[in-house]
Amino acid sequence: MNIAEQIVAGDVRATARLLRDIDDQIPSARDILKELYPHTGKAHVVGFTGSPGVGKSTLVDQIALRYRQDGLTVGILAVDPTSPFTGGAILGDRIRMQRHFLDSGVFIRSLATRGHFGGLTRSTNDMINVLDAMGKDMILVETVGVGQDEVEIANSAHTTVLVTVPGMGDEVQAIKAGIMEIGNIFVVNKADREGSRKTVRELRTLIELGLRRRVENGWEPLIVETEALKGRGLEELYSDIQKHREYLRANPQQLNEVLWKRARNQFVEALRDQTLRTILDRLNNRGVSLDALIKMIMNKEADPYSLVHEILNEELR
């Protein structure tokens, strides 16, 4: 069996190693991804996003347990931040997921955001595809919880769950811009805390304000209060995710929109990354140092636009 076949057969080691190669941007990983792509499209991808500390890991742990009770297999991708100074990272999401370590029906991978060296993004989409091809029924992606990631996840997931907690005050205000539009389900976690109801009300108001635009889509975002640690509200969250999944199934046009978004996102990402990689490699082979170019720009000996123009003329002839 080659590596792609091993992965499709559910081999954990082969899967783990390919994920590493994708993360490390080893070119041969692309060839394996090509072979795996026809085997993707069966999993339902749920993205969990929200500020650090709102309880995303604990929710993912609990909901994974619920899917296991249904006999569904689960793949989890949990992202934590890379230190911008050292490039190192502490990936601690697994601490909340210990009960799944010996369950062969759950595959957990911790990821660092890494530095996006040379402008390349680490592709969560590729990793989702690998877990999908591996045969996982549900794929849960936990974002790092800050910045751009929160919106990007909506381009990768079928269902996006936005997690918040009571009493963050401006939190709901911050949610309003952009992020409000990506949540299919809103979770108010740590709902035993004071102000939970108020947060729910505020969310509902915001959803209703934004609803006029969305009503034709037919999906009104759901709000659920949870106490992830105790498992309270988890059954409701589970059934809300099911509802969204069934809604997509019953509305081919909406499902198509999601699939279109995912496909476009994957294509553009692959195009961008491989083009950039190819050009940087060629420059390197010609003995052009990236550092030297950056230095020229920094010292105002050249401008970035002309340099790119020149390079593209040279490399894309």
Partner: peptide, 25 residues
């Protein structure tokens, strides 16, 4: 982490089975 490594930290009370399963995944 400060030396630039990616560290997976899983907390206390780990059995050898849990540790090896985590290391492989």
């Amino acid at each position: 982490r400060d030396a630039g490594f990616e560290v997976i930290y899983t907390g206390c009370h780990q059995t050898p089975e849990q540790i090896v399963s985590t290391a492989i995944q």
